[in-house]
């Protein structure tokens, strides 16, 4: 915890890693409308230099786009249409609740680095980047960042969120968080949700909000190595397990049988989350924090089409 407080924002992304990220862009499986002109081709016809099509002139069209050469040859008025280039809205929502502070390395650090990396990629590609953190409620938001200039601001924001999440106590409520997020984020765009998804509420209700047409959603589930293999994390014997979020107590006598059952449950739970995401068109990925961070970003996220 102390380490988190003193973690400099620069440690989230090393310069070398930033260079590797410069070559990547956030990809969207859908062609989405942005607010400002950007680097991304839009479905809309607009004012770029790239010709797209012709159409017949109708009264009221801008006379500047009439193709006079064609009129001369055909004696008909045609309007020249150009490709419109728009910016892409990238929303990064990462979980900083107390459960994310579990594990070695802690899941929240991993989530922060993921958010920083994706935000960095979004900003260097002139996408509209919004960053949200949440625990039991939406804790912080940094919306509508664009361009390289707010990168330090974004990193600082991300670095600060873990402490805010650590101070929150209470059961997570992902459903409420995502509901509030969808109310605030009316824009189309890519949404990346990073969490451990250990939510005692109904997960399907929460993911329902990401299934909106305007979102191209990605769900990244983070697990601590101690959660994947509790025995290795010292969870064995007669224990009084305390839930870091809501202080719920479970008195268990952990033996191999229970460990086996737990692992089966974890696998089933991950499959359950995967199925819920698939049903709602959300791309899902699970990883544990022992996997090197650059491998996740540079390999797994590219393989799943989030980065390209």
């Amino acid at each position: 915890m102390a380490e988190t407080q003193t973690t400099p924002k620069q440690s989230l992304l090393s310069p070398l890693f930033m260079q590797q990220l410069d070559r990547l862009d956030v990809m969207s499986r859908k062609i989405l409308q942005g607010k400002l002109q950007g680097e991304r081709r839009s479905k809309k016809r607009g004012q770029s230099v790239e010709f797209a099509d012709y159409r017949s002139y109708v009264v009221g069209d801008d006379l500047r786009f009439i193709d006079w050469n064609l009129y001369a040859r055909l004696d008909k008025l045609f309007l020249r249409l150009f490709m419109e280039e728009e910016d892409l809205s990238v929303s990064l929502i990462f979980d900083v609740s107390r459960s994310m502070h579990y594990g070695e390395p802690r899941k929240v650090e991993y989530a922060q680095r993921l958010a920083a990396a994706l935000g960095y990629i979004g900003l260097v590609n002139y996408n509209r980047v919004s960053v949200y953190s949440f625990a039991d409620v939406l804790l912080g938001q940094l919306p509508n960042l664009r361009g390289r200039r707010p990168i330090p601001q974004m990193l600082e924001f991300i670095a600060d969120q873990s402490r805010a999440g650590e101070d929150r106590r209470g059961a997570g409520n992902l459903s409420d968080v995502l509901r509030r997020f969808t109310l605030m984020q009316r824009q189309k765009g890519v949404v990346v949700l990073v969490s451990d998804f250990f939510d005692k509420g109904e997960l399907s209700d929460a993911l329902r909000y990401l299934a909106a047409e305007r979102f191209d959603a990605y769900a990244i589930q983070l697990l601590a190595p101690q959660e994947v293999d509790p025995q290795a994390g010292g969870v064995i014997g007669d224990l009084r397990l305390i839930d870091m979020e809501d202080a719920d107590v479970a008195e268990v006598s952990v033996g191999p049988a229970l460990i086996k059952r737990y692992k089966a449950n974890l696998q089933a739970y991950c499959q359950h989350v995967r199925d819920l995401c698939r049903k709602r068109g959300v791309m899902y990925m699970v990883t544990d924090t022992s996997v090197p961070f650059d491998t996740v970003v540079l390999r797994y996220l590219r393989e799943r089409g989030l980065l390209g």
Binding site: S99, Y102, D196, F198, D238, I242, D243, M244, V252, L258
Partner: peptide, 22 residues
């Protein structure tokens, strides 16, 4: 009462479910 070692975990969700399954 069994003297149990206290341990913080991210969530007791899966542990309780495992006990319930047993």
């Amino acid at each position: 009462k069994l003297r149990r070692r206290q341990l913080d975990v991210g969530s007791t969700l899966l542990w309780k479910k495992a006990i319930q399954d047993l």
